[in-house]
Computed example of a mutant assay.
Amino acid sequence: MSQLASLWNTTNRVPVVGRRIFSIAFSQKAPYFATIRPTVTELRPNYAEVRIPDRRRVHNHIGTVHAIALCNGLEMAMGALAEVTIPSDKRWIPKGMEVAYTAKASSDIRCIAETDQTQWDEANGDLAVRVKGVRDDGTVVVEGVIRLWVTPKK
Rank of each mutant, 00 (worst) to 15 (best):
E143C: 08
R57A: 13
D121W: 02
N124I: 14
V129R: 03
V17W: 13
C111Q: 03
S106G: 08
T41L: 10
P94L: 01
E83F: 01
A100L: 14
V131H: 00
C111T: 02
G133N: 14
R44I: 07
E143S: 09
Q28M: 15
E143I: 00
E42Y: 14
W120S: 05
T41P: 04
F26G: 00
E143P: 02
K104W: 03
L4G: 05
L74T: 08
L70F: 12
I93V: 05
D108N: 12
N60Q: 04
D116A: 14
I21D: 02
G133A: 08
N124G: 14
G63D: 06
T64N: 09
V50C: 07
I93P: 08
T102A: 12
E42T: 13
Y101W: 05
R147V: 08
T10K: 15
S107W: 01
L4P: 00
A103L: 04
K90A: 12
S6V: 09
L7V: 10
R19K: 14
I112Q: 04
R130E: 15
D137N: 15
D126N: 15
T102N: 08
E83S: 06
A82F: 10
C71V: 15
V141S: 13
L70T: 05
R37S: 11
A48D: 04
G138D: 03
L7P: 07
A82C: 13
R19H: 11
W8A: 09
N60G: 02
T64F: 03
V14T: 11
D121T: 09
P152L: 07
G96I: 11
M78I: 04
I93F: 10
N72R: 10
R55D: 05
K90Y: 03
V65E: 03
I62W: 02
V99W: 06
K29Q: 15
V150Y: 09
S6Q: 14
P87L: 10
T151H: 14
Y32D: 01
K104A: 06
D89G: 09
R91S: 11
T11P: 02
V142F: 03
W149A: 14
N12I: 02
R91I: 09
Q119C: 13
V17H: 15
K132C: 06
R135L: 00
R44N: 06
L74Y: 13
P15M: 06
S107I: 05
